[in-house]
Design a protein around this nucleic acid. Structure first.
Lengths: 333, 333
DNA sequence: TTGTATGCGTTATCAA
DNA sequence: TTGATAACGCATACAA
């Protein structure tokens, strides 16, 4: 391994002091054009690469941000991460990626270590920390963006970005109603999921707003996977064969429901319409193609990073941003 | 935002010098047990978090590694990244994630910036750099692991990890033969893909080893997605209806082939057997469930990180590691 | 067991 | 336009 050239090395080779080189490298004023060119040439020749560690110590800036997610292999967060990284790249930032596995203890360690690394900002997705703990951490970062997590009091230097899950459910219900469906069911997600809670809320409020009454028995809980969706659909349709529409917590649950319907000879969407949520790649692969709620994760990722950058550079930003869902109508409803 | 406590702050509060605090924090010998406890208590009270930037400058170590991948939202690399991060977490390391989009220029920038950040090691996946350029970079890192990229000369401080794609194709072919198939076709991937090249090579050599002759006309190239797989299968089966087995470049291509077969009334696997590659989640969701070649990406990710750690700590490691594939037999073959 | 001096590579500040 | 000096926060080497 070769030893890295330092500012000092370049300075010696150019016959000037480190400061002149520093100014040339960071193209600051105060260096003659000819001198600058000479220094730049020498730097290139020596493969000089600024030591960001030293620079970080001197300036208290690292052009680095932390990205904390439950699981980067979950397609949702994978896309978010991609969007964040793309945008970060464009602005010359690097990102630390850390998974929490939805474990609060691991999340805390992540936040501690990121603090130690001196990141300029923090992106925290689906935090499982208690309000008070979370606030305590946020206060120690000079900039942060929260995804999918509300925070009570307004805190400086932080912005919360949330998916409008209420609206997502509303879109599904309204589409069913426009299709003339009368017995609309909902397979909701895990009880501890905030998204699940909000979608359920949106589901019931949308039905009420449309004069539907008595639908509590058409709501069934399910784990967010295909087999559970299958089981939930089986239960619902066995007890209530009159159901003609199902809004599923996510696409996997929807696929499970579709599979059960197919196996029991129900035609989709003629006999029963199904709407999923998330628009995972599978949604457009299976037959019938799944009608589903779409959030543009890549866009969200870019938005997150841009927002963080605005906070870092001190521009004013709103303290809360809502992401609006879109209904992608395909074949299942 | 609160100002961070430094070693100095803790020292003052404890009435000792920075060095004593430093020893206590890093639990090195030379501090009385009582003193150490007192210091640790004060440090906790002050929310003291070691400044890794300063530590990095002093020790030339950052407990940080760089992970460069073509696209972290590609499930294959997402899983790899997860494995890497999990293992890194266990050893107290943080990872920088950078995407290249398979763009050599972007890859180079990534390697430059990582060098600047002073990472202790580099993980480079599917590098598109020329041999000479790549070697030049590798030499500037004190430790590195290459995935899916061979390098000619043996270089100190680096290990190449490769999937045994040759063997993957061999497994598929041998399974077809054990099934009694006589007309085995292959839909191979993009010409610039190393994996595709090696699988194609494995395919032909396995057939030759089993006394098959004249099968070049049963090989068709395809982009790595469903529609292209569909088109390739259509072409092959139209021209050569006698085909009774297809080994596809990846699962998406296989799904496309399966869809074409289904639409033309061919029974799978009775009339035609299909084997994919990668074992993406979709493979076990569609019907018939796809028989495919499986690599345990999470395991590979962990292996990569462990190997890198061994190089960093100076333990001896092999300069090349092969990952063996497994055939997951499901319903399509 | 504890303390002192010095340096890591860079930038900020002030002087020339 | 250029240079000298200090500072960032910590660890290493050596001394007490």
């Amino acid at each position: 391994m070769k030893k890295r050239a330092t500012l000092m090395d370049v300075a010696r080779a150019a016959g000037v002091t480190m400061m002149t080189v520093s100014r040339a490298i960071n193209n600051k004023s105060g260096v003659s054009a000819s001198m600058r060119q000479k220094i730049l040439d020498i730097a290139r020749e020596l493969d000089y690469q600024p030591n960001q560690i030293a620079r970080g110590l001197a300036t208290n800036q690292t052009t680095t941000v932390g990205l904390v997610v439950p699981d980067n292999s979950n397609p949702f967060f994978a896309q978010i991460a991609r969007g964040v990284e793309d945008q970060a790249y464009e602005f010359g930032y690097n990102i630390f990626l850390i998974n929490t596995s939805e474990d609060p203890a691991r999340e805390q360690k992540a936040l501690d270590s990121l603090l130690g690394k001196g990141v300029d900002g923090l992106i925290l997705c689906s935090s499982r920390l208690s309000e008070s703990r979370l606030v305590r951490y946020i206060e120690r970062y000079s900039a942060s963006v929260l995804l999918n997590r509300d925070i009570k009091g307004a805190i400086r230097n932080t912005t919360a970005i949330n998916l409008n899950d209420l609206r997502a459910a509303q879109l599904a219900v309204e589409h069913f109603i426009s299709l003339g469906r009368k017995n609309i069911a909902h397979i909701c997600g895990p009880a501890n999921s905030i998204s699940s809670k909000k979608r359920l809320e949106g589901f019931t409020s949308a039905l009420k707003a449309n004069k539907f009454t008595s639908f509590d028995h058409l709501i069934e809980r399910s784990a967010p996977d295909i087999p559970s969706g299958y089981a939930a659909a089986k239960f619902l349709l066995t007890v209530h064969p009159e159901i003609d529409a199902i809004y599923a917590f996510n696409d996997l649950v929807a696929v499970g429901a579709v599979q059960y319907c197919a196996e029991t000879g129900r035609r989709i969407p003629q006999d029963i319409a199904v709407i999923g949520n998330d628009d995972i790649p599978l949604a457009s692969i299976i037959r019938p193609r799944l009608t589903t709620i779409h959030f543009d994760q890549n866009f969200i990722g870019r938005l997150i990073m841009r927002t963080l950058l605005e906070i870092i550079t001190g521009e004013v930003t709103p303290r809360a941003i809502q992401i609006e869902p879109e209904l992608y109508i395909r074949e299942s409803a």
